[in-house]
């Protein structure tokens, strides 16, 4: 595979972790920049020295085996883990020490994998809670979310807990989009969906990204995620292993064999 040139300035190109083919690139014009991050739960360290960049409007996928710490990266960005070392900055603001309820003000939206809707609240109320930090429910974004996911408009009065898995996932995304974030973080958006809905979900994410929102996605469905993203990160044992364009990763023999099942 040929050496690709980064769009931004290349500041670090060495990573000597076993089996790594190339260093993880770093940019200095990133929207989200994670640098040398060590993080975990309590005293248990999961991530060590993780680097991650998302530039404005980019579509990034994090893939890797179970237990690699993919979700932990996202939780750490959102202040839900114990961050031990390294920095996280968003839009040139250091958020390494910020709490989740502060990070929401920075323009970062996050959809956790499980329990990502308020199940006893109605669809409309869930969306209203998405914009809780504003004094009033913003009409524009609410309309945009309803246009993006027409089923939510149809069911605006329904209790969220009574909806199907796919509808709940749309509601969770809609909730996170209410503040029109610059970056939307999705933790396993296809998990638990019926196979015929997975494709549809990825199409919707493509459109959200095409409309200008940067997307950072953790996916179990690695091939599909890499096919659609701009760049992908392969995470193993809490460390960066590969980073490249999605197509390049898909084409890489080593990556295919080790992580994509041939």
């Amino acid at each position: 595979m040929s050496e690709t040139t980064a769009d931004g300035e290349r500041t670090d190109a060495t990573d000597e972790t076993a089996g790594a083919k190339r260093g993880t690139r770093r940019w200095d014009d990133s929207l989200l920049a994670v640098r040398d991050l060590d993080a975990g739960y309590g005293d248990l360290q999961i991530l060590s020295g993780v680097d991650l960049d998302v530039r404005s409007g980019e579509y990034i996928a994090i893939v890797g085996p179970n237990g690699a710490g993919k979700s932990t990266v996202m939780k750490s960005v959102f202040g839900l883990t114990n961050r031990m070392a390294g920095t996280v900055s968003f839009d040139d603001t250091d958020i390494s020490e910020s709490k989740p309820e502060e990070i929401i003000y920075e323009g970062l939206g996050y959809v956790p994998q499980n329990d990502n809707v308020f199940s006893s609240l109605s669809v409309q109320e869930n969306l209203e809670m998405g914009a809780y930090i504003l004094d009033e429910v913003p009409e524009g974004p609410l309309e945009t979310v309803y246009d993006r996911f027409p089923i939510l408009r149809e069911r605006s009065g329904q209790e969220a807990g009574t909806m199907s898995g796919g509808q709940r996932q749309m509601l969770a995304m809609g909730r996170a989009l209410m503040l029109e974030p610059d970056l939307l973080m999705l933790d396993e958006p296809s998990a638990g969906l019926a196979p015929d809905l997975v494709e549809d979900m990825f199409d919707r994410i493509d459109r959200i990204n095409a409309d200008g929102t940067a997307v950072l996605m953790v996916e179990q469905n690695a091939k599909e995620a890499l096919r659609r993203c701009d760049r992908g990160y392969v995470l193993v044992d809490g460390q960066n292993r590969y980073e490249d364009s999605g197509d390049a990763l898909l084409a890489d023999e080593q990556v295919r064999q080790d992580f994509l099942g041939g």
Binding site: F78, L80, K99, P100, E101, I104, Y105, Y110, P112, D115, N116, V117, F118, S119, S120, L121, E125, M129, G130, Y132, I133, R175
Partner: peptide, 16 residues
């Protein structure tokens, strides 16, 4: 009601 329902989610939606 949101916080009674799901405290973690309430925190990440910015509910104080």
């Amino acid at each position: 009601r949101a916080m009674a329902d799901n405290e973690d989610l309430a925190r990440i939606t910015g509910i104080p």
